[in-house]
């Protein structure tokens, strides 16, 4: 087992280096960056140096004057020591900005994830046990509708209904207008209030796939021989489903849930942008759109690490939960 994990880790590291390289080449080949905006703005000030001179100076300051390959290695060397440089757009160290924003995204994603589990698993099990019934069709269609729903359209509908017509929530942002004057408890409630719509959006958009996954796996288990045996023994249907079938469905579920845990840190790029929630997703969206290379570079590599970590965790969990895998 340990050998397997070490092998996987090494392989992940190699993949990560390649991914980082591809991202680096891509970022460096972009025709524009935030530096040019800065240089243009600075060169237009009275009595300033020309655009080219500013560009040269800024490139030298941020290490952009090296070739792509030496640049990549120096980036790697710094990144290994935890130094990702200063963000151009936010003018603070990248890691500091990351630290400021990631926890909000994590809380939001975490709450949404818990709701997803609470809704998806029971409904998925229900759909599987009543296969081809009306309930099953309804759940399947709802799940597919959730998957098919464009995030931005759903968010707009929610805003129209709850923010404009009913006036229950603000249209966007994390804090209200008089946030500063609230008590500490009131401030927390204010933030929670602003997170309701984004979390509802996240849950509705992503609950469908987990629901279908649960249903498919539950169906597979229900068709297994040992379920027939359990029924033949004369066990009650409840016992068959919850004691024999559901426990076995948990194997794939636990692996996929474990695998998606790292993803909670990645932030919900689209949803956060739509609701202007200053989490890691919205922050990096702004950075990427304005060509802030250090921050985008960090965020993309961070996302790759999360993906690799997710795969690794789900594979390891699979071996932990299912003894049959361990032997081979």
């Amino acid at each position: 087992m340990r050998k397997y994990i070490i092998k996987r880790l090494l392989l992940s590291a190699v993949i990560l280096v390649f991914v980082a390289f591809i991202i680096y080449v891509l970022m460096r080949s972009l025709p524009t960056s935030y530096l040019e905006q800065v240089a243009r703005a600075k060169s237009q000030q009275p009595g300033s140096k020309s655009f080219e001179e500013w560009m040269e100076q800024l490139s030298a300051t941020y290490g952009m004057d090296k070739g792509i390959i030496p640049g990549f290695f120096s980036w790697c060397a710094k990144a290994l020591r935890g130094n990702f440089g200063d963000s151009w757009r936010w003018t603070v160290p990248v890691t500091e900005k990351f630290h400021d924003t990631v926890w909000l995204s994590f809380v939001m994603g975490g709450i949404a994830f818990i709701f997803e589990l609470l809704i998806a698993i029971p409904l998925g099990v229900l759909a599987a046990t009543k296969q081809y019934s009306r309930t099953d069709y309804a759940i399947t269609v709802i799940a597919l509708a959730g998957i098919s729903l464009p995030t931005f359209f759903f968010a707009s509908l929610l805003k129209l209904l709850f923010s404009v017509k009913l006036g229950w929530f603000d249209l966007g942002g994390l804090v209200g207008r008089n946030y500063e004057r609230l008590s500490p408890m009131g401030q927390i409630l204010d933030k929670a209030d602003h997170l309701v719509l984004p979390i509802v959006t996240l849950v509705v958009i992503s609950v469908g796939s987990l629901m279908r996954y649960t249903r498919t796996n539950m169906l597979e288990v229900l068709n297994a021989d040992y379920i027939r045996t359990a029924r033949a023994k004369g066990l009650s249907e409840n016992r068959v489903i919850f004691h024999h079938a559901f426990r076995n469905t948990l194997i794939p579920l636990v692996t996929i849930i474990g695998g998606s845990l790292p993803g909670l840190f990645s932030g919900a790029l689209i949803t956060e942008t739509l609701y202007s929630i200053p989490g890691i997703g919205y922050t990096s969206y702004q950075s990427m759109v304005s060509g802030d290379i250090p921050f985008s570079m960090f965020y993309l590599v961070f996302l790759s690490i999360l993906t690799l970590l997710g795969n690794l965790i789900s594979d390891i969990l699979y071996a932990v939960v299912d003894p049959r895998v361990r032997i081979s």
């Binding site: 991202i23 790029l269 969206y285 985008s296 993309l300 996302l303 690799l308």
Partner: peptide
């Protein structure tokens, strides 16, 4: 592993 949404943006 490449975060495609981010790359496309």
């Amino acid at each position: 592993c490449i975060p495609s949404t981010a790359i496309i943006i």
